[in-house]
């Protein structure tokens, strides 16, 4: 499964509810991809309200300049809400790798593409007492399984995008995601 990085462009979509860290996850992934020396186009769609409502982060990663900057067909789809799962999966192509958090999403059996669950919310609550770093656990997980960004760059993205008081937790969350990925294997 560790072949995504060589593909260009790679299209990643992360969906969930506003307030779940969906957009931050998109920015971190973009930051890591840039650190890997690639071109990125990262965007977000959300409603007018600051909290609640659907939020989607799109990321295109490429070795050449990116024309269309939004995601057309995701290669990687991460969903933190049933609503975004229902909307974006089953994907239009069998090649899409879908990652979901079972705390929020019950996948239908007819989904195309490969389907992977990652209990990030549960893991975050268990380890940190709250769900806020679940987005980073997922990033550690998908980076390990897909190679979409390198581990070093993802760690660097934590340094660049999180205030210093959150960095230790951030790095640990990434590591938890990676470990979970190694356990399920790719």
């Amino acid at each position: 499964m560790n072949n995504t990085m060589s593909k260009s462009p790679v299209q990643v979509r992360i969906g969930g509810e506003a307030g779940q860290g969906v957009i931050l996850a998109g920015v971190m992934l973009a930051s890591a991809a840039m650190e890997d020396g690639r071109k990125v186009a990262q965007s977000a769609r959300y409603g007018a309200a600051v909290r609640g409502g659907e939020a989607t982060a799109d990321l295109v990663i490429s070795d050449t300049p990116i024309d269309y900057p939004h995601v057309e067909i995701p290669d990687i789809l991460v969903v933190f809400s049933q609503q975004t799962y229902d909307r974006f999966a089953p994907p239009r192509t069998e090649d899409t790798k879908v990652f979901y958090d079972p705390f929020f999403v019950t996948p239908s059996k007819t989904s195309g593409g490969s389907l992977r669950e990652i209990s990030a919310t549960e893991m975050a609550i268990e380890r940190f007492g709250k769900s806020t770093s679940s987005n980073l656990i997922v990033l550690g997980f998908i980076a390990q399984l897909t190679g979409v960004v390198s581990e070093a760059s993802l760690n660097a993205a934590i340094e660049q995008n999180l205030p210093s008081r959150h960095r230790a937790v951030g790095l640990e969350a990434l590591a938890m995601g990676k470990k979970a990925a190694l356990e399920v294997g790719g």
């Binding site: 973009a30 071109k39 186009a41 990262q42 965007s43």
Partner: peptide
């Protein structure tokens, strides 16, 4: 909005 909110290199 699309360009204003886009993040790129």
């Amino acid at each position: 909005e699309a360009v204003g909110h886009l993040r790129e290199n």
